[in-house]
């Protein structure tokens, strides 16, 4: 096993472990910080598929943008949001345990089905050597030629979404 594959599996393990911690942690801030690690590892895995530009934009958008927005949203809101586990009765705890078991069972079932499909023969392996000179160069070229219309549309949609988010989250002018 070479260093190349070792780094890949290290990123994969880090991604899954931190994602699991982010999901099962009862502290919202901890799970968001654990999500930093998850998104960083996803960017590392994307590098192994030779999608360099995608990895960079993953780092910039997710780690630099979405997580900061999430943290701001949590920190700016009331501290009661952080207290996830409220005091519950025995019935509610039993219901939540049943809920968790069922949810975990469903997720594991889906994973088993997907794994059965993926472990079927006939997949090629991702080639590590690039047959092409410059993936990033041709990505930029494609973005300005073939994908120009989706590119412009998505920029417009992002602008609309951000204006809409700012409008929704604004302070009300007067109390009802």
């Amino acid at each position: 096993m070479s260093v190349y594959t070792l780094i890949f599996y290290f990123f994969g393990l880090m991604m899954l472990a931190s994602a699991l911690y982010a999901v099962i942690s009862t502290n919202l801030v901890r799970s968001v910080f654990s999500l930093f690690l998850t998104f960083f590892s996803v960017a590392g895995i994307l590098v192994f598929t030779r999608a360099d530009y995608l990895a960079i934009s993953q780092l910039m958008i997710y780690v630099g943008g979405i997580l900061v927005v999430l943290l701001f949203g949590i920190m700016l809101s009331d501290k009661n949001v952080l207290e996830l586990v409220g005091r519950k009765g025995r019935k509610a705890i039993a219901a939540s345990v049943l809920n968790r078991v069922l949810g975990a069972g469903l997720a594991l079932l889906l994973f088993a089905v997907l794994a059965c499909v993926f472990l079927d023969d006939g997949w090629k392996s991702v080639v590590s050597e690039s047959q092409q000179a410059e993936p990033i160069q041709s990505t930029g070229f494609m973005m300005m030629t073939t994908y120009l219309l989706p590119f412009e549309m998505i920029s417009l949609l992002l602008l609309m979404a951000l204006i809409g988010a700012a409008y929704i989250a604004r302070k009300p002018k007067h109390n009802r």
Partner: peptide
């Protein structure tokens, strides 16, 4: 350079 099988991704 070694390769990583697609299944692992």
């Amino acid at each position: 350079m070694s390769t990583i099988p697609l299944e692992h991704f």
